[in-house]
Design a protein around this nucleic acid. Structure first.
Length: 571
RNA sequence: CGGUGAGUAGCGCAGCUUGGUAGCGCACUUGUUUUGGGUACAAGGGGUCGCAGGUUCAAAUCCUGUCUCACCGACCA
């Protein structure tokens, strides 16, 4: 739809609002795309909505092309469905619960597995109706602990969620691959630099899972890439194999050292002549029922970070992973968290693979204010079980054996899961097979954060003047900027002629017919990020010419007035 | 939920220590000016100082409570 700026709500701002931390949030406010209503809740203004609708249309078209059928489910859902699936108790405070006038329990839908499973259970009764893939594009609500970064992590947001239903795992895998390709098509059409990565399933359950990330420094997730292959995984999921190298031979005798001012690895390394790679951190978490102790210690090298997703998957560790309080640690170990280590540790412990292969290392003595130095496995303490429990770091070997890993930041804009029968079992959703037997269905689920894509696109496409939209999702594709249109009939005529021709050609054009100075118009059109500008001024019009300017490259060229529409149409 | 900080005009902020006419920049309105990169000048409109209570002759300012927002942390498909 074309538009005249004098009849439009441009709502641009010169100043950056204080509360906006990241560039996309700042630019979305400055360019008049969104306004905050309350924490994590935003109104979409005309320019923002134009972009959002373009993204939505691409997502919808590609989903339909991939064979999915669009439906629309209620945003408010009855609590009994959530009780049936078990997530009423599992989901926690992120699930906004509310009552109707009869005091019946409802939730604001953060996702729709329950509703769709209930629907398919009622509507589908034969294997002949499978496979089936249903999707919707709809508002979700998650009561995030800390909404931030504008629509990047808001409480209310728009999501495309699709759910597929299958008789067999093979069929599920086919649909999963199909959705994988559809997602690639979507992000390619939008014009984003993205990567699919191996991901954790989290609380949604199931087995296989990929996230789609837009690469950006401001991303909240860390992604591990191989330098040599196309391996890519969320750092949460990137595995490490134990190194084959045995620890070096002990160099010195283990000895106890007074370390009153060292309660962290950083302090220890600063105050004593020990390399951080030769230190061990001891973290204490709640143990599971299968463990004889209430608590269990996890040991990682001083320069490594515990990977909570990996740790939680260990049999001996209670899920969800819960760190012991200082009080609990003192009660069972007799020392504070700053002085723990494997020697004389009264609770069971698991060491990271990388801890198993070091020698002459330093760790707490389980006595406040004291550390052991030159600890060696076997000689001084039994190493016990080792496991992969740390985050990968840049330079670690890639899990597929090719090259080493590098770490980049990403924004999660899509996530696909093979759910299996988690919901169809608990909610009794199945069909009769060919042999007349009742069988629960296999499910896949596939999400895209539609509103988040808009913010992610800006993180990837901006410069000092404002947004540099990819053509596919720009609010307008062409801006006409007439100089002194209100004093010159020639300019007015030329501008309107170009405007009408573009209108007829079906191009999204915005003509800036405000009575503003040129500088104001240029600045606004660049802030809003319209990819192509046509500048019409007296000087060039004397020669029947206008100027074309590319927003992204800044390139300008003079063109004949009569050629400009054809030129723009060809872009 | 813990820590820190902030709520004064649409936005960004000063004023609060030392209680006494509520201010500045941007934006907005009107006029003149300027006209290929956020012009200049002048005039003007707009605020129960987050809310409630207290102290005081007098509270934006001091005290108490409360709400909201932001940042850090924990949490999170």
């Amino acid at each position: 739809m074309p538009m005249r700026s004098s009849q439009y709500l441009l709502s641009t701002k010169k100043e950056t609002p204080a509360s906006a931390e990241i560039i996309s949030h700042q630019l979305m406010i400055r360019a008049g795309m969104i306004r905050k209503l309350a924490s994590g809740m935003y109104t979409w203004l005309p320019s923002g909505l134009r972009v959002l609708n373009k993204v939505t249309n691409i997502v919808r078209e590609e989903m339909v092309r991939a064979g999915a059928l669009e439906i629309l489910m209620p945003m408010v859902q009855p609590a009994d469905l959530w009780q049936e699936s078990g997530r009423w108790d599992e989901y926690g405070p992120e699930l906004l619960r509310l009552n109707d006038r009869h005091k019946r329990d409802f939730v604001l839908g953060p996702t729709h597995e329950e509703v769709i499973t209930n629907l398919v259970k009622r509507e589908v009764s034969s294997y002949k109706q499978l496979p089936l893939n249903l999707f919707q594009i709809q508002t979700k609500f998650r009561d995030e602990v800390r909404p931030r970064f504008g629509v990047m992590r808001s409480r209310e947001f728009i999501m495309k969620d699709a759910y597929s239903f299958h008789l067999t795992q093979e069929s599920l895998e086919t649909s999963y691959q199909n959705m994988f390709r559809a997602y690639c098509n979507i992000f390619e059409r939008i014009g984003l630099s993205y990567r699919p990565v191996i991901a954790d399933n989290g609380s949604i359950g199931g087995s296989m899972s990929h996230e789609f990330h837009v690469l950006a420094d401001s991303g909240e997730d860390a992604i591990a890439f191989s330098t040599e292959s196309d391996f890519a995984a969320n750092v949460e999921m990137a595995e490490l194999t134990p190194s084959n190298s045995a620890p070096d031979a002990p160099q010195g005798e283990m000895h106890l050292v007074e370390t009153p001012k060292a309660t962290t690895i950083a302090e220890l390394v600063e105050q004593f002549p020990v390399a951080v790679e030769k230190t061990v951190k001891t973290l204490v978490v709640k143990a599971s029922d299968s463990c004889e102790s209430d608590l269990i210690a996890l040991l990682v090298r001083g320069d490594h970070e515990l990977n909570e997703v990996k740790a939680e998957k260990l049999d001996q560790v209670a899920a969800p992973l819960t760190f012991a309080t200082e009080e609990e640690i003192r009660r069972s170990i007799g020392a504070g968290p700053g002085s723990l280590g494997p020697v004389n540790l009264p609770i069971p412990f698991i060491i990271d693979h990388s801890v198993a292969s070091i020698s002459d290392f330093a760790a707490g003595a389980n006595i406040d204010g004291k550390h052991f130095f030159n600890i060696n496995w076997q000689r001084d303490v039994e190493p016990g079980e080792s496991a992969d429990i740390r985050n990968v770091q840049a330079g670690d070997p890639s899990p597929d054996g090719n090259g080493v890993l590098e770490i980049k930041r990403g924004i999660e804009v899509g996530h696909i899961f093979q759910l299996g029968d988690k919901y169809s079992q608990s909610m009794n959703c199945g069909v009769l097979t060919e042999s007349g037997k009742h069988q629960p269905l296999s499910m896949g689920c596939y999400g895209i954060g539609v509103t988040r894509i808009v913010a992610a696109a800006i993180e990837q496409n901006h410069d000092k003047f404002g947004i540099t939209w990819p053509d596919a999702i720009a609010p307008f594709n062409v801006a006409i900027i007439p100089m002194n249109m209100h004093k010159s009939h020639r300019i007015q005529e030329a501008a309107n002629q170009v405007y009408n021709q573009l209108l007829e050609a079906g191009i999204d054009v915005l003509i800036d017919d405000r009575k503003e100075r040129p500088g104001v118009m240029f600045a606004d059109m660049e802030l809003v990020g319209i990819p192509h500008q046509i500048i019409i001024g007296e000087r060039n019009l004397d020669e029947e010419k206008v100027e074309y300017k590319n927003r992204r490259s800044g390139e300008k060229q003079l063109m004949a007035l009569n050629d400009i529409v054809g030129f723009v149409k060809g872009l």
